[in-house]
Each structure stands twice: as C-alpha cells, then as structure tokens.
Amino acid sequence: MDTDTKLKYLRTEKLPHIWCPGCGHGIILGALLKSFDKLGWEKNDIVVVSGIGCSGRTPGYIDANTLHTTHGRALAFATGIKMVNPALHVVVVMGDGDASAIGGNHLIHAARRNIDLTAIVFNNNIYGMTGGQYSPTTPFGAKASTAPYGNIEPNFDLVELAMGAGATYVARATSYHEAILEKYIQNALLHKGFSFIDVYTTCPTQFGRLNKIKSPIDNIFMLRDKAIMKSKAEKMSPEEIKGKVLIGEFRNDKEKREYTELYDEIIRRATKKEM
C-alpha cells in the first residue's frame, strides 16, 4: 500500500535514482509523494521546483510539472510561477547550501513576502553533490572537504532564520522520523502562505565519510540520536539540549495575508483606477 501510493506520483521510468545508498534525500521524496496522495492533489496542478545539488534532482522523479533551475534560485523561479498562476500548488525543494548560502537572500525574501510556496530544505549539513565542502549548516567543528581541520563557522539554524524572515508555517523534521515528516509536509502543503520545513537528513557519502560516521545506518541513527521533539526539549536543561536538533512545528500563523491574494486586491484597485 505504501509503495503504491508513492508510485502514483513517481516517474517510475526515471528509476533507479542517482542518490547513494543511505542518502536521506529519497526518504524525503517518498514523504512528499505520500503527502500529495493523502491530499489527493491533481498532478497537473502540482509544480515542483528545485535548485542544483543532489537534492536538486528530486523533481525529476515526480510526475508533475517539474523545474530544475540554477543553484540557489529555485524560490525566485517559483515566485514567478506562483504569481502568474496562483491556482498551482508550488513546492520548492532545496539543498542546505542551495537554500541558505547561494540562495539565502531568496529564502528570506520569499518568507518575508509570505507568498504561498512550500519550501523544503534537504539539510544534510554539507555540499553533497560537489564533494563534501562545508555549508552554512555544517556544525561547528565538523569536518568537510574544505574544512579539513574542522569547521570554524557557526552554523545557521534555518528554523530561526525562516521565522525571523517572516515565514508563517515553520517546522523541522528528520528523514528518520518519517511519520512526523509526512505530517509536517502535509500541514505545510495545506498552509496558505510561505511554509518552510527544515529536514535534517543524511549524506553518508560526504558528511558521514568525512566525519567518521561509517555505515549508512549509523548516519541514520545519528538523526535519531540527535533529534528531540521541541515539546520534550522545553522540559530539559540547556546542557541536556546542547548539540541536539529540535524537531517540531515552530510556527503556524494563519493571520498574515498571503502575497498573491494581496496582489489580486491591487488588480481590483487598478482596474477600478483607484490609486
């Protein structure tokens, strides 16, 4: 049953996928496909946009209108699509480098506008595709191919970033906690406004290799061991939380007006010649 629902929105002829064994990207793709099915969305109404990276290959496997753009710019392309046709469900999948380094500016502005897009970051804390260079979310001290002595840059908390920028739905999940991930994706898809999910995930080939987390399964256990529910963390001391990754829903604001709706009002005013 599970496989069936995933297959429904999958371009099966494009398999096998390019991802490495143990890569978390496929799990996030699966959760997204199941969410589409749960919501019963019409394939023709779905647009999936990505940037460049291993995560950028995701749309190619989805039977929808799919767009694989340039590195970091997926949200800007998606903004154009949503503006022109607000009836489309526009989902944007990005890597951590994609979303928060080269595309960081687009992320904060899409969030600020509260345009009705769902942004999902495949956050493996590393540049997977280009060979394990450090990204803005690589933990302090972790190794990367461009941080052979350990990363000295503090890492971004993308949830804080998205909230600070004005996103109206913000959550974090992991590719280990599949059920939670699916639930948040569905909530995000249904949310009217800019929704953002930071998905903590694995890259055994680069992050794991460079940080001595040997087997794919150990990488997945890393997610399990590091993640704690936000509700649980609230009852814990700062020392206990240190080094942990909080998961949960951080914001679900239904009050703030959505961008394309506000623009429709502009059109109403302009066609009535009210300035």
């Binding site: 753009t69 154009g80 699509i81 503006m83």
Partner: peptide
C-alpha cells in the same frame, strides 16, 4: 529567475 518562472 522569476520571469522565467512566469513565462513557464
């Protein structure tokens, strides 16, 4: 980027 999206 946006105009490419808009055109599509």
């Amino acid at each position: 980027a946006a105009i490419i999206g808009g055109s599509l």
